[in-house]
């Protein structure tokens, strides 16, 4: 089981490496789609069907958005500057952060034992034991989302609203003409 999981995540990592290293934008978009769909399968293996459904839907939509943004535009990175100094500086930067990350990841609990097992009064354990009785919903993810932690969901809905609003403002129709006119005056 863990081996299958590790293999799938390894495939994801390979797709991510291809995404970062390719110089063609369209290839990068397609391989980031591979990352997303592989992760949807990983989520199914992690016993998270809710997250897998959302991941597949979101991945489809974000792929369509990214492909529409690259289609008909200059996708090839013409000047692939592989300056030795720049790349080595980037590698050093990432390596330093990775060293700190390894220090943190060494402190993590063993894989396969959820964090709620290590504390007697963990909130997740309470949700599992009394979720059905107090909320009446068998799907405990929904119960957490809409009852125990509805404030979080309210914040999420607000962020999504603001993102849609921001997109509408950035892509509004008469922005360029207005700027042009003010320059003329």
């Amino acid at each position: 089981m863990t081996e299958v999981l590790a293999l799938l995540i390894l495939l994801t990592v390979i797709a991510a490496i291809i995404t970062v290293l390719t110089s063609n934008l369209l290839y990068a978009v397609i391989s980031v789609g591979a990352v997303g769909f592989l992760l949807a399968i990983v989520y199914l293996f992690l016993a998270a069907p809710d997250v897998a459904i959302v991941q597949i839907g979101v991945e489809v939509v974000s792929l369509v958005i990214l492909i529409r943004a690259t289609l008909g535009r200059e996708v090839q990175q013409l000047k692939t500057v592989h300056a030795v100094v720049g790349v080595s500086f980037a590698v050093a930067f990432v390596a330093v952060i990775g060293l700190f990350g390894i220090q943190v990841f060494n402190q993590f609990p063993e894989f396969g034992i959820p964090v709620m097992e290590r504390f007697a009064d963990a909130p997740a354990l309470v949700y599992l034991q009394s979720g059905l009785a107090t909320t009446g919903a068998p799907n405990l993810v929904t119960a957490v989302l809409l009852d125990f932690r509805a404030w979080d969901t309210l914040g999420e809905a607000t962020v999504l609203f603001c993102a849609a609003l921001g997109t509408a403002v950035v892509l509004r129709r008469n922005a360029r003409i207005g700027r042009k006119k003010s320059e003329d005056k």
Binding site: D50, I53, G57, V58, N139, V141, A143, L146
Partner: peptide
């Protein structure tokens, strides 16, 4: 609230 899914997943599927 009974089976996997919910407002987020369903909304994304409707939009798609």
């Amino acid at each position: 609230h009974i089976t996997p899914g919910g407002g987020f997943g369903g909304g994304v599927v409707i939009a798609s």
